[in-house]
Design a protein around this nucleic acid. Structure first.
Lengths: 199, 199
DNA sequence: CAATAAAGTCGACCGCGTTCGGTTTTCTAT
DNA sequence: ATAGAAAACCGAACGCGGTCGACTTTATTG
């Protein structure tokens, strides 16, 4: 009943995550080996696998915090009175600027969110987080009559999210080189999504 | 001047690609080791790296053929007289069905196309291949008055492409489980892209 | 307080992608 | 034909993610 064991477990777990935040943050994901993490956390290599079954899983724990921070920034910055297009651009460019500062981190996260090796709860949670934020934003816009009657907020949210991820992809694959072109592309695509393509 | 050397090089290169097509096709990318490829091609492990600097690169050579085939199928099946939405769905569902039959292959390819470790020409080529096909298709539709006046075929093509890739992503991440839901989602998103979201 | 079970720890070890250095084969110039 | 240079070849060796089984620490039971 003493919980000495449970206590220790929690401490060790935290130590590993702390090591991950330190080292992933400094050197990036690929350049940090499990042994590095183990050493930094003061445990043996094998021990890590008693807490996380894969390096990827450690990465996800690390992500949790980063993502939370980035969404906090969003809710503080986006002006709910601005025009819809402006709101969307503010939201996504904020996220994008974060990604540009953590290119490796972002690439790895996006890969795992978009095309995970094995479907996992965490990836879906992150996506859902985006979709919820967007849906709410769209819902407000709808209430102000800025949307078509027939428009479905859920699938509209999905569209914007996918176009955003697509712009990131364009940046990562070298299709667009600098921040400005990404912003321009995003604006164009969003505009087009609002206006519609067909006649 | 005899070219014995050059001849051999070409043969070896082909042997490696042939081995890749065999083994990647049979067991998939991850389950095929470089040593397997080397053995199948009848060369030493190190030799492979005289021809390809990375396993990924071998994969891309392999992709070249597969992608070519899949586009051939597209141009044979899509009916240029059908309504635009129908054409788009036919095109993409054909590609998607190919992917469902080669899940690992598709995941690997999409990862590398969307978020490559290092920006590379090949990824851009494949993307461009899609965009060109779409742009032409849209151009034809425009000529028949099926598009808005102001619509820009290039960015419209980009939208559809990104929405398509996004639907694949939804399938890979487990957001949508079966082929039918992917098709439904795609139809909904395309329809929405044509009609527009805003008022 | 033993004695036994259960949980946790660890580093040697495996398989794989990639690198390296020595060896063999082909080319070139006399 | 032959010596020397260049290219190509190969498998041993490295680094890394992940596994295994022996060992240590904590919990449980009578």
């Amino acid at each position: 009943m003493s919980g000495v064991r449970a206590q220790k477990k929690r401490e060790t777990r935290r130590a590993i995550i702390a090591a991950a935040i330190r080292l992933f943050g400094e050197r990036g994901y690929e350049r940090t080996s499990i042994e590095d993490l183990a050493a930094e956390a003061g445990v043996g290599k094998g021990t890590i696998y008693g807490y996380f079954s894969t390096k990827q899983e450690i990465f996800q724990a690390f992500c949790g915090e980063e993502i939370e921070n980035s969404f906090r920034a969003v809710s503080e910055t986006v002006d709910p009175e601005a025009p819809l297009l402006r709101q969307l651009l503010t939201l996504f460019m904020l996220q994008f600027r974060f990604v540009t500062k953590n290119r490796e981190f972002g690439r790895h996260l996006l890969r795992e969110m978009a095309f995970p090796k094995t479907a996992n709860r965490k990836s879906l949670e992150y996506i859902q987080r985006y979709l919820d934020t967007l849906e709410e934003l769209l819902h407000r816009a709808g209430a102000k009559g800025q949307l078509r009657r027939e428009a479905n907020p859920a699938s509209a949210a999905a569209s914007f999210y996918l176009l955003y991820v697509g712009c990131l992809s364009g940046w990562y694959s070298g299709y667009m080189k600098d921040q400005q072109s990404v912003e321009d592309a995003m604006e164009k695509l969003f505009q087009q999504a609002l206006e519609g393509i067909g006649s």
